[in-house]
Amino acid sequence: MAVLMALPIGMVVWFSLQNNVITNASPQFVGLEHYLEIFADAQFHAALKNTAVFVLASVAAHLVIGLAFAMLLNTRLLPHWVKTIFRTIFVLPWLLTVAIVAVLWRLILNPNGVFNYLLVSTGLIDAPREWLADPNLALFAVVLINIWCGYPFFMISLLAGLQGISADLYEAASVDGAGPIRAFFSITIPQLRPIIISMTLLDLIWTSHQFTLIWMTTGGGPLDRTELLSTYTYKLAFSQYMFSAASASAVVVLVISAVLAFAYVRHQRARD
């Protein structure tokens, strides 16, 4: 099992240090040349920046929406069956294959689509926009889609966490005169903290791996505005057949994930 992970990683590092792997029968060792090459590439810089914006905005929104929905679902004011129905609806976006999410939102965000209709008819914008083709809007649009399909994972874990908080804590707080807002910040958040940190780190890792959504909505365009490290790497390898440069880029992506994974593992250890 470990071999199936370690071997490919070793291979990709080895590829990145050579010239013309896979396409060339006898590749030459070129050291760090490919790393210098991509570090000097403006497109790589754009991808790095877009990935940071995409990931941070998505994860922050996943956390806020996931927590809000989890708290709504955790209410004791409504019967169980009502909550089950709403929970099923809330999980729906996460059950759809990302490829399907991408096609569905291309329909919704179409210039003639229902999203533009709603915004124009409520007066929020004056004319329909090309959400996925406008260089100034495309990154916002893919973040919006990613928020929609990614929050349920947070929600489910936070809901499990909320159900684990003892009601005695809240009762003690209200006896001490704490209102709902005070209780939220003094009880709910501290109690959920371990789950919030774990889920945030995992979501940072996973969102930074997002490929399908971008590939099927914008393909990284327009003008590289939605190019992420994953699509940048994929294009190097499978559009331009520069497998060595792609491997170097893939190693950079790996290092970023490894740093986050290290933080995640340390946090899990501290929890145990």
Binding site: M5, P8, I9, F15, I22, I205, S230, T233, L254
Partner: peptide
């Protein structure tokens, strides 16, 4: 403990990183 490492790797290693060597293999 190896299986724990493997689980964390599966969660953390970017698919795009594995794609190129897996394609080769």
């Amino acid at each position: 403990s190896i299986i724990n490492i493997a689980v964390i790797s599966v969660q953390a290693v970017p698919p795009i990183t594995l794609l190129i060597p897996y394609f080769g293999l």
